[in-house]
């Protein structure tokens, strides 16, 4: 057998698997929007929203309710990840990695701060004070932040071609949500804090990816991601929820009312999609790099609109055709890149 040929094949296989994981991430992320949307109308969250909105206004209520939903989402993510790690036999490695705070788990806890309170909360702030389309578009910018950071910080190679692919996918996403974006901003009563929220989302997820890439140097992705969600659970349940309760919001009252079969079921599905989307995202980073992994992950915008159309019957704007085409061009630019460039992801 030819050595050079086998080498090339092995290497192409690695890159292909990396893209496969990033694509899984995008699909699962898109699917998350189904449970992530319907959970809002269920008890106790609808009542919680109404109660807080009556005293503090809609925008504020959306954020406070979002904290509780996100906290429960983080809990069910851990459940889903226990299944994932159980099937892959990673519990031993998880214990070993958790104990190595300084070299390993520190990075994942740090990633959880940027990905959790900063990005997710920012995203909800953008949603609450500007609108859903703006929140979606703002979040799409995160691969730019992620790939620039990864390249400046630890020299991840990001080719012009890969960057072009990322830019195409971002413009594709903007086009998909474009109509809604114009309506929202044109409405005029936009509060500046909404824009800050959008910025928090883009910067938060970008930084998270770069930090995760750093931690994943010397840890396994499945394990690293589980530690990241352990961190996020601590942030929500030990810090955010109690603080909001002390400030007088009815956090615990509604948290205790969540044990209702349909609400739990929807939260479990939110956990499966969110947890698996994140773990596949992390799995792609060591194989194709943070920039490409995030770029392909960005296809979630397209998948979300498609799944929402399929399951909710919401007919998307015609701009989805143009935006979807741009996403497709961007992805093929990345998929078809000569992979010999990717022998190692970082410069010497």
């Amino acid at each position: 057998m030819d050595l050079q040929l086998l080498k090339k094949q092995e290497h192409q296989r690695r890159v292909r698997k990396g893209f496969m994981w990033a694509l899984f991430c995008a699909i699962l992320w898109g699917l998350w929007y189904i449970p992530g949307t319907v959970v809002w109308v269920l008890n106790p969250f609808d009542e919680m929203y109404a109660e807080i909105a009556a005293t503090n206004g809609d925008g504020m209520s959306l954020i406070i309710t979002a904290v509780l939903i996100t906290a429960f989402n983080a809990l069910t993510v851990i459940l889903a990840l226990m299944v994932w790690n159980g099937v892959l036999g990673k519990f031993g490695e998880m214990k070993r990695t958790l104990k190595e705070f300084n070299p390993c788990s520190k990075w994942f806890f740090l990633a959880s701060i940027f990905g959790g309170p900063m990005a997710i909360l920012g995203s909800f702030i953008a949603m609450g004070f500007v609108g859903g389309a703006f929140a979606a578009v703002a979040a799409l910018m995160y691969p730019v932040v992620g790939s620039i950071l990864a390249s400046k910080w630890y020299g991840e190679k990001i080719s012009k071609r890969a960057f072009a692919g990322i830019v195409f996918i971002i413009f594709g996403g903007i086009t998909i949500f474009g109509g809604g974006l114009l309506t929202e901003i044109g409405a005029g009563n936009v509060v500046w804090i909404g824009y800050i929220g959008g910025l928090m989302a883009a910067v938060g997820w970008g930084i998270e990816g770069a930090i995760a890439g750093k931690g994943l140097d010397i840890a396994e992705p499945d394990v690293g991601l589980t530690l990241r969600f352990l961190g996020e659970n601590i942030i929500w349940w030990v810090i955010a929820v109690p603080i909001l309760a002390i400030l007088g919001f009815p956090m615990f009252k509604y948290a205790l009312m969540v044990f209702e079969p349909l609400t739990m079921l929807v939260l479990v599905f939110a956990g499966i999609t969110f947890g698996f989307c994140y773990v596949t995202w992390y799995k792609s980073f060591p194989l194709i790099g943070v920039g490409r992994g995030q770029g392909i992950g960005n296809l979630y915008g397209l998948f979300a609109v498609v799944f929402i159309a399929l399951f909710f019957g919401d007919i998307p704007d015609w701009t989805i055709l143009v935006g979807g085409a741009l996403c497709l061009i961007g992805s093929s630019i990345m998929f078809s890149e000569d992979t010999s460039q990717l022998e190692s992801l970082r410069g010497e």
């Binding site: 057998m1 086998l6 690695r14 140097d217 396994e220 194989l287 190692s344 992801l345 970082r346």
Partner: peptide, 23 residues
Amino acid sequence: DSINFDLIELASCSLLRDVEVMV
């Protein structure tokens, strides 16, 4: 295979490099 894949990830992230390859 899982451990071997850890080696591949380490090489992909430039912490390891291969000095010799053989079929």
